[in-house]
Design a binder for these strands. Structure first.
Lengths: 111, 111
DNA sequence: TTGCGTTATATAAATAAAAGTATAATAGTA
DNA sequence: TACTATTATACTTTTATTTATATAACGCAA
């Protein structure tokens, strides 16, 4: 019987999500493309949904994740803030180490 | 800014959930009360939902979690199978150790 | 034989989440 | 000035999930 460990990790503030895999992925794509719209498109998420997601996170966190530019050449765009980069980096390291830790624990107990 | 780590752990087989916190809790209550209906009632879950949940898990796992008795004194009831006990025990140990591991990791990286 | 509390099961209703649509505002540039 | 691709925002529609309702079968006990 091949069972597999699954898990989800995220960060909350006052009982509300403020960071997780979804935001991490979107922010990486914003970093690369320079546009929230393109980032959303890449993962087949509607722009409005992506926009609401980021807006909610920012509101809860109390700081901006994106530096926006509306209009202008190429219509504008978005870039990461320093605080966004810091959060991403910490979450990535945590996620990576957690993955190793959980999987070795799982093997120890279930195999 | 007080951020809090949150996580969810569960076991899958062929991409479908076969065990997690919910089932663990219900099975504990069945063990104590001798009845799936009472177990469901305790956590304000409809009996049909609890029944479907357990039935689906059993189907996916390929073995029974409950020994059922229909009719008879007190209408019948349900008891845990040995395999259910084993799964519960392993998952509990895993969960407990994972909790410690994740939280110390979280402190190390986020604090 | 009737009542009881359970398991077993299907179906409907309600709620929540996700996805989609529409439109305004913006500021460089051709 | 007209065009462009973006951010910003409000709604509507659709889908998925959860919850509720209803009913049958069962077997012991009074």
């Amino acid at each position: 019987m091949i069972l597999k460990l699954r898990y989800k990790l995220w960060i909350e503030k006052d009982g509300e999500k403020v960071f997780g895999d979804g935001p991490l992925d979107i922010l990486h794509r914003v970093e690369r493309t320079g546009s929230l719209r393109q980032a959303a498109e890449e993962i087949n998420m509607s722009y409005s949904q992506a926009w609401n997601l980021i807006k909610d996170l920012e509101k809860r966190l109390g700081f901006n994740l994106l530096k926006r530019k509306v209009g202008g050449e190429r219509g504008g765009g978005s870039q990461l803030t320093e605080q966004a980069r810091e959060m991403m980096m910490k979450f990535e390291i945590f996620h990576e180490e957690a993955d190793q830790s959980l999987n070795s624990l799982y093997k120890k107990i279930f195999k």
